Amino acid sequence: MDLAGVFIFGLSGGTLAVRHRLDLFGVLVLSMAAALAGGVARDLLLGAAPPATFRDDRYLWAALASGLAAFFFHRPILRLVKPVMVLDAAGLGLFTVAGCSKALDYGMEPLPAVLLAVITACGGGVLRDLLVTEIPRVLREEIYAVAALLGAVIVVAGGRLGLPDLPVAIAAVAATFALRVVSVVRGWSAPRAPGS
């Protein structure tokens, strides 16, 4: 899940960089930032040092490959409806599950594991958006972190009920992806402060 999330989030970063007309170096930087920041933050918070990104070069290769794919094949990717949002929703689901599962494997209690899953899922997207001077999606009115919360709760609940890992992971990724995409299509947003 981690490597799939790295590649998909890398595509979202690279595609956004192409839309902002960045050069090859800029596309690779944005791709790697989106792909790796959440996992690095997760591992550092878990005390898993050095982070998996720097212990296993497959993470770096996956991030680089996704940046190159976005650079050379951006036209077919951009034909998707809202390509960055779709890729971002898929990466959000994958990283939510990977983050929550790793936190639980490290013996964290459910609530901190859910929080760490959200940090893992949102971290790369936050850095990606900041690097192109956009307000991070997690802070906008769109449903973003709430979708990651839903996926993490499914992982925790599945573990508590003793359900098999793979079906739980698939359900959590699907629920996160679906909530994120439907919220954008329907224009759903998180509540705002009364009178604001």
Rank of each mutant, 00 (worst) to 15 (best):
residue 129 D to G: 02
residue 104 L to I: 02
residue 74 H to C: 05
residue 172 A to D: 07
residue 72 F to Y: 15
residue 145 A to Q: 05
residue 79 R to Q: 14
residue 194 P to D: 11
residue 164 P to D: 12
residue 118 V to T: 00
residue 142 E to S: 06
residue 147 A to C: 09
residue 65 A to T: 04
residue 171 A to L: 13
residue 115 L to N: 09
residue 83 P to G: 08
residue 151 G to N: 10
residue 139 L to P: 01
residue 164 P to C: 10
residue 159 G to C: 02
residue 80 L to Y: 13
residue 100 C to K: 07
residue 147 A to N: 10
residue 94 L to C: 10
residue 176 T to I: 02
residue 189 S to G: 14
residue 84 V to I: 14
residue 98 A to M: 00
residue 72 F to A: 06
residue 71 F to V: 06
residue 93 G to T: 07
residue 189 S to L: 04
residue 76 P to T: 00
residue 130 L to M: 11
residue 70 A to Q: 15
residue 167 P to D: 09
residue 176 T to P: 03
residue 186 R to C: 10
residue 176 T to Y: 01
residue 177 F to I: 01
residue 118 V to H: 00
residue 111 L to G: 07
residue 80 L to W: 12
residue 80 L to R: 08
residue 195 G to Y: 15
residue 91 G to F: 02
residue 142 E to P: 02
residue 96 T to I: 03
residue 71 F to N: 04
residue 104 L to P: 01
residue 108 M to K: 05
residue 97 V to K: 11
residue 188 W to G: 06
residue 82 K to V: 08
residue 74 H to D: 04
residue 150 L to P: 00
residue 97 V to N: 09
residue 85 M to G: 12
residue 70 A to Y: 11
residue 81 V to A: 14
residue 130 L to H: 07
residue 160 R to G: 14
residue 109 E to Q: 09
residue 183 S to Y: 02
residue 85 M to Y: 14
residue 97 V to T: 01
residue 99 G to H: 04
residue 178 A to G: 15
residue 150 L to T: 15
residue 73 F to G: 06
residue 158 G to I: 00
residue 184 V to N: 08
residue 64 L to G: 13
residue 163 L to W: 11
residue 115 L to K: 10
residue 71 F to Y: 15
residue 171 A to H: 03
residue 159 G to T: 01
residue 143 I to A: 10
residue 149 L to Q: 05
residue 95 F to W: 12
residue 189 S to Y: 11
residue 173 V to I: 15
residue 162 G to I: 13
residue 147 A to H: 07
residue 108 M to Q: 08
residue 127 L to D: 04
residue 159 G to Y: 09
residue 195 G to L: 04
residue 113 A to C: 09
residue 168 V to M: 04
residue 76 P to E: 11
residue 66 S to F: 05
residue 149 L to E: 11
residue 152 A to Q: 12
residue 160 R to C: 08
residue 123 G to Y: 04
residue 175 A to Y: 13
residue 65 A to S: 13
residue 171 A to C: 11
residue 175 A to L: 00
residue 85 M to S: 14
residue 185 V to I: 10
residue 145 A to I: 10
residue 91 G to E: 00
residue 165 D to C: 09
residue 182 V to M: 11
residue 154 I to A: 11
residue 164 P to H: 10
residue 95 F to L: 15
residue 104 L to D: 02
residue 100 C to F: 03
residue 191 P to G: 08
residue 193 A to R: 15
residue 77 I to D: 09
residue 100 C to Q: 10
residue 158 G to P: 13
residue 71 F to I: 04
residue 134 E to I: 01
residue 65 A to L: 15
residue 185 V to P: 02
residue 145 A to T: 12
residue 156 V to I: 07
residue 127 L to K: 05
residue 159 G to L: 10
residue 110 P to A: 02
residue 110 P to M: 09
residue 129 D to M: 02
residue 157 A to L: 15
residue 94 L to Y: 01
residue 172 A to E: 07
residue 110 P to T: 04
residue 187 G to D: 06
residue 83 P to K: 14
residue 97 V to R: 03
residue 168 V to H: 01
residue 148 A to E: 03
residue 94 L to R: 13
residue 188 W to M: 12
residue 105 D to C: 07
residue 91 G to I: 03
residue 81 V to Y: 15
residue 89 A to F: 03
residue 106 Y to W: 10
residue 170 I to A: 07
residue 194 P to W: 03
residue 177 F to W: 01
